[in-house]
């Protein structure tokens, strides 16, 4: 039988394969060029991978499903700027796996919530949102203060992220590359071999949950929330600089 409309229509397997090919062309044409057009990720200073403690907090953020109510993507519109701050850059989520852009805003966008509130506020708000914001419909997360942070597999988690492109270092060559890219102080934080020490040191130094005697999941989550959107110093860039990348 000659290859014809009919031969596709009567062969379910072939029909499925060819349908998939046809619809993926649309997606591929839109997505693939973004990987090789250099301006996709804006050239900007300050964006770095998360420290082990922040990354542990990020994992709790995903575990608790915070993304179901909170986006992390400020769009370039006047009303969003006035409420949340500068629009989000692609560069700012380059080390996010999986990204937390989200598409549902039951609560406010969190892309720039870092440093907006005090640690004490976050702790109180996560424990019992209505004790500080009476109108809130956000759930209580009291267990974050009760659960001791489990970081036994932190190095493995960093190794997994390294596989998908986050520049955590394991060999001395990788470490040297990080020193050049981020400076020595930062590069030390991204060293997988020092994951546990770094995590403990940051928790001890900043005491996010206000209780020095324990390392809780709250410490990690607040560390993560407090760094969101704070890496880029926008005052360094001219108005319009980021508009050139689109």
């Amino acid at each position: 039988m000659k290859f014809s409309h009919e031969s596709i229509e009567i062969n379910a397997g072939l029909l499925i394969v060819l349908t998939l090919v046809a619809i993926s062309i649309g997606g591929l044409v839109e997505i693939v060029p973004l990987f090789y057009i250099p301006g996709t990720i804006e050239k900007v200073d300050g964006v770095r991978p998360y420290t082990p403690l922040e990354q542990a907090g990020r994992d709790i953020y995903t575990r608790e499903g915070c993304y179901l109510c909170h986006s992390q993507m400020i769009r370039p519109f006047r009303d969003e700027k006035l409420r949340f701050g500068h629009y989000s850059l692609a560069a700012e989520s380059q080390y996010d796996h999986p990204f937390q852009w989200g598409s549902k805003r039951t609560g406010p966008d969190l892309a720039r919530v870092g440093k907006k509130y005090s640690n004490a506020w976050h702790v109180q708000h996560l424990k019992a949102p209505r004790s500080v914001v009476p109108e809130s419909i956000m759930p209580n997360y009291p267990w974050l203060l009760e659960n001791t942070l489990n970081y036994s597999d932190m190095a493995d988690r960093m190794r997994a992220l390294k596989k998908v492109g986050v520049p955590y270092s394991e060999t001395s060559a990788e470490y040297q590359a990080n020193v050049e890219k981020f400076g020595k102080a930062k590069a030390d934080l991204f060293n997988i071999n020092l994951a546990d020490e770094n995590l403990l040191a940051q928790a001890r130094a900043e005491n996010f949950d206000g209780d020095r005697s324990r390392l809780t999941e709250m410490d990690a989550l607040v560390a993560y929330l407090q760094v969101l959107g704070t890496m880029v110093d926008f005052s360094q860039y001219d108005e319009g600089y980021f508009a050139e990348f689109r």
Partner: peptide, 17 residues
């Protein structure tokens, strides 16, 4: 921008500014 008038191709970021 910076006291000068900039004219560039259309995109949502420029439109926003």
């Amino acid at each position: 921008s910076n006291g000068k008038t900039v004219t560039q191709h259309w995109n949502t970021r420029a439109k926003y500014i």
